[in-house]
């Protein structure tokens, strides 16, 4: 079903970073509910969300996923097989030693958490062992970060704008860089299960 260009590279990927904005609740639910329970890389998600949302998203998604889903804590060591969600109103950053940092620096691309901040710091920390995945959304956040992931040798995936609830964010990325894969929402989890796990 998918070209197997990375065959033979066992556990190449340590982490998948995911950026999503408007329409994200459904998209994340579709993907996380289909990720295999043995999925090995850490999954780290920035969803643009109201500052007052608190812990709703991780609790909701934890019920839908075979993998444990939790809010990313300050200084937490990033573990494989876990799904982490950025806390509302904080930027989420990955340190070189694969721990999380938070920041309350100003909004970037009108957003905090900002997808670019996660993607750029993760690209620096993980290099070629990173997958960047950008989903539905109404702004241009994530494109620059995805470009950095590609430059660092990581794999870049964008949701097909045709299946995205709001196509602006994936379209932005497709214009900004030569993404490796453009996948419909329903094929993203199967792709990750086969190619990335």
């Amino acid at each position: 079903m998918f070209p197997d260009k990375d065959a033979g590279r066992e556990n190449r990927f340590e982490a998948v970073v995911v950026g999503v904005s408007a329409g994200g609740l459904k998209a994340l639910q579709v993907i996380l509910s289909e990720l295999d329970k043995k999925f090995h890389p850490s999954v780290i998600i920035v969803q643009h969300i109201s500052p007052a949302a608190d812990n709703f998203l991780p609790r909701f998604l934890n019920k839908k996923s075979a993998l444990p889903v939790k809010q990313a804590d300050e200084k937490e060591v990033i573990k494989s097989g876990y799904v982490y969600i950025a806390p509302p109103d904080y930027h989420l950053l990955v340190e070189e030693d694969k721990t999380f940092s938070l920041s309350v620096d100003g909004k970037i691309n009108y957003a905090r958490p900002c997808i670019d901040v996660l993607f750029e710091t993760a690209a620096y920390a993980y290099g070629a062992a990173l997958v960047g995945l950008l989903l539905t959304g109404a702004n241009r956040d994530g494109s620059q970060g995805l470009k950095k992931i590609k430059e660092a040798g990581g794999l870049t995936i964008v949701e097909d704008p045709k299946t995205a609830e709001v196509p602006i964010m994936p379209q932005g990325a497709i214009k900004t860089l030569d993404v490796d894969h453009i996948l419909s929402l329903r094929t993203i989890a199967p792709f990750l299960n086969i190619q990335v796990a």
Binding site: L93, V94, E95, E96, S101, S103, D105, V117, E120, T121, Y124, A125
Partner: peptide, 9 residues
């Protein structure tokens, strides 16, 4: 200081 933030700044 946390390196990722300071590097971004």
């Amino acid at each position: 200081y946390s390196k990722a933030s300071i590097k971004r700044r």
